[in-house]
Simulated assay, not measured.
Amino acid sequence: MRLEIQSEADPFDFYAKDAGLGRESLYKALTPGAKPRYDTMLKLLHALGVKLSATPVHQ
């Protein structure tokens, strides 16, 4: 019999909850080749504390 105890919570659980997404949805959105929706990425960025902004290429 093998018993494993996870000492730290899965970071995906924390960020998924904070973004208002399910853990599986977050994994699916971040899988290589996935095409996540814009609103999904904005929710994730907000949960990570990242602000997305645009600036002109040519000034």
Rank of each mutant, 00 (worst) to 15 (best):
M1V: 09
R2T: 13
R2C: 02
E4V: 15
I5T: 11
Q6F: 13
Q6P: 04
S7C: 08
S7P: 10
S7Q: 15
E8N: 10
E8R: 15
A9D: 14
A9E: 15
A9P: 14
D10Q: 07
D10P: 13
P11D: 07
F12N: 05
F12V: 15
F12T: 14
D13A: 10
D13Q: 08
F14N: 05
F14A: 10
F14C: 04
Y15A: 06
Y15R: 12
A16Q: 04
A16F: 08
A16V: 05
D18F: 08
A19C: 06
A19T: 05
G20S: 06
G20W: 05
G22D: 12
R23K: 15
E24M: 07
E24Y: 04
E24Q: 12
E24W: 03
E24C: 01
E24S: 14
E24L: 04
S25F: 03
S25R: 13
Y27Q: 06
Y27P: 02
Y27A: 11
K28Q: 15
T31N: 05
T31P: 03
G33R: 11
G33M: 02
G33T: 08
G33Y: 04
K35C: 01
K35H: 04
K35F: 01
K35R: 15
P36Q: 09
R37P: 02
R37V: 01
D39N: 09
D39S: 08
D39W: 00
T40N: 06
M41P: 05
M41W: 06
M41R: 11
L42D: 00
L42F: 01
K43A: 08
L44A: 02
L44G: 04
L45A: 15
L45R: 02
H46P: 01
A47Y: 12
A47T: 09
A47R: 12
A47W: 14
A47F: 08
L48D: 08
L48T: 01
G49F: 12
V50F: 12
V50T: 09
K51G: 01
K51F: 06
K51P: 00
L52E: 05
S53C: 04
S53P: 07
A54N: 06
A54L: 15
T55N: 09
T55Y: 07
V57I: 11
V57K: 11
H58A: 11
H58I: 10
H58W: 09
H58L: 11
Q59T: 05
